[in-house]
Measured scan of single mutants.
Amino acid sequence: KEQQNAFYEILHLPNLTEEQRNGFIQSLKDDPSVSKEILAEAKKLNDAQA
């Protein structure tokens, strides 16, 4: 469930490039146990690119 939530949120971050988004999603698939950390990174990058 946590992985699904992170997946959904990353898909809807407006400021990520397609490449960045795909990278985060691939990381989620590779290691779902760190989905919280991956989501935090994605949000940080999204904010930095706002």
Rank of each mutant, 00 (worst) to 15 (best):
K1V: 15
K1P: 13
Q3R: 03
Q3Y: 13
Q3M: 06
Q3S: 06
Q4L: 04
Q4V: 07
Q4D: 12
N5Q: 14
N5P: 05
A6L: 09
A6K: 04
A6V: 09
A6C: 05
F7Y: 08
F7Q: 10
Y8I: 06
Y8C: 02
Y8E: 12
E9K: 15
I10Q: 01
I10A: 01
I10K: 01
I10D: 01
I10G: 01
I10F: 02
I10R: 01
L11I: 06
L11F: 13
H12D: 06
H12I: 08
L13T: 01
L13W: 02
P14H: 08
P14M: 13
P14K: 12
P14L: 10
N15F: 14
N15D: 07
N15Q: 03
N15R: 06
N15W: 14
T17C: 02
T17V: 02
E18K: 10
E19I: 04
Q20D: 03
Q20W: 02
R21G: 01
N22Q: 12
N22E: 06
N22R: 14
F24C: 01
F24T: 00
F24D: 00
I25V: 11
I25C: 02
I25L: 08
Q26F: 13
Q26N: 09
S27W: 14
S27A: 08
S27Q: 03
S27F: 12
S27M: 09
L28C: 04
L28G: 01
L28I: 06
L28Y: 05
K29I: 10
K29G: 03
K29C: 04
K29V: 07
D30N: 09
D30R: 15
D31M: 08
D31E: 10
P32D: 06
S33M: 10
V34Q: 10
V34G: 12
V34P: 04
V34L: 09
V34D: 10
S35C: 03
S35E: 10
S35R: 04
S35V: 10
K36D: 09
K36R: 13
K36A: 09
E37F: 15
E37Y: 15
I38M: 03
L39M: 11
A40R: 13
A40Q: 13
E41D: 09
E41A: 13
E41I: 13
A42M: 01
A42I: 01
K43N: 12
K43Y: 15
K43E: 05
K43F: 15
K44H: 09
L45C: 02
L45P: 00
L45R: 07
D47I: 14
D47E: 10
A48M: 12
Q49H: 07
Q49W: 08
Q49S: 07
A50N: 11
A50S: 12
